[in-house]
């Protein structure tokens, strides 16, 4: 199969969907003239014009609010957040408007929109340009949160998000943009929202992860397999509401669970996954649940400190070894 970058995969998703449905349009900072800071919108205005690929003022609140309003008027907007960190500016629109409108108006309308939010550590982006903030939205009913971990899912998940009638936050990890991977050329490449994927089957322990941290999870699984452990790895893909069934079934089989994400461990999504497993399958556990995530500090600037902050493959390996002592 041909290989393309994660960034190229999202671009293909946008192009194919915009050709298919002319109610889709994109708003964001620096996306039309510049093509997005990671090249993820490059060339789109040439085909679709600047009426459908719009450079906005630096007004994140208005970007999200206007996307919601356009959705109410029958469009399918995609709003780019530049950096996920900037979503703090838009929180009223996200959690009081976008998440609530369908429910509080008794289902009179739908909000078929996607917020694209580039997140994660990137070479000393530091405290305000490097965060993984998915856990904030886990507590908000009415929205769905997804995060692809590879180019193929980047395409299939973005296409599915655009086609969904629910408001979706699509976290795309900045470190993944330049990475390449196999992506099918089939037009109907769609990743089901709400469903996790068992990426690697195993018998002794389950690692639940998502986004860029999936690479550490698979790397750790490889190391542990060499030591004789049989490791199951689950990619959550949809982070909220997450696929509890797939996780619980896996833990019932392996009796051990480790959750790994690049976001800060404290208050992170790992806590929710652990709590669900504790509620539903605690009798099946043969070892305490372990969470691996970033340290509880803002993201530091200096490369040595950033590295100290970052959750690592070795922590997953050590954590799982410890479960068998």
């Amino acid at each position: 199969m041909r290989e393309i970058t994660f960034s190229q995969a999202t671009l293909e998703a946008m192009t194919e969907e915009m050709r298919r449905d002319d109610t889709i349009f994109v708003m964001g900072e620096d996306i039309a003239r510049q093509g997005g800071i990671f090249g993820q919108f490059k060339g789109l205005p040439d085909e679709f014009g600047t009426d459908r690929i719009m450079d906005t003022p630096i007004s994140e609140t208005a970007i999200i609010g206007a996307a919601i309003g356009a959705a109410l008027a029958g469009m399918r907007p995609v709003a780019d957040m530049h950096f996920a960190d900037f979503m703090g500016i838009t929180m009223d629109e996200v959690f009081n408007q976008m998440a609530k409108i369908r429910y509080m108006f008794g289902g009179q309308t739908k909000i078929p929109m996607v917020i694209r939010a580039p997140d994660g550590l990137i070479r000393s982006g530091a405290a305000q340009h490097s965060q993984s903030i998915e856990a904030w939205f886990n507590n908000i009913p009415g929205i769905k949160v997804v995060a692809p971990s590879n180019p193929s899912d980047a395409k299939g998940l973005l296409k599915a998000a655009i086609r969904s009638d629910d408001p979706i936050i699509y976290f795309e990890n900045k470190d993944l943009y330049r990475q390449s991977g196999p992506v099918s050329e089939e037009e109907e490449l769609l990743v089901e929202i709400g469903k996790a994927r068992v990426v690697k089957e195993g018998r002794d322990v389950t690692i639940v992860s998502y986004s860029v941290m999936m690479q550490s999870a698979l790397e750790a699984a490889g190391i542990l397999e060499g030591e004789g452990y049989s490791v199951e790895v689950i990619d959550l893909i949809t982070l909220s509401p997450f696929d509890e069934k797939t996780v619980i079934e896996s833990v019932k089989k392996t009796h051990r669970l480790l959750i790994a994400h690049e976001a800060v461990k404290k208050g992170g999504l790992g806590g929710e996954v652990a709590a669900v497993v504790a509620e539903e399958a605690i009798d099946y556990l043969d070892a305490p649940i372990i969470r691996v995530g970033a340290k509880f500090t803002p993201v530091p600037f200096s490369p040595t400190l950033e590295e100290a902050y970052r959750p690592k493959t070795q922590e997953i390996v050590d954590g799982i070894r410890g479960m068998f002592k």
């Binding site: 609010g65 206007a66 996307a67 919601i68 309003g69 356009a70 959705a71 008027a73 469009m75």
Partner: peptide, 10 residues
Amino acid sequence: YTLATGAALA
């Protein structure tokens, strides 16, 4: 405001 602006944009 922003919602009305978006509906107008649509």
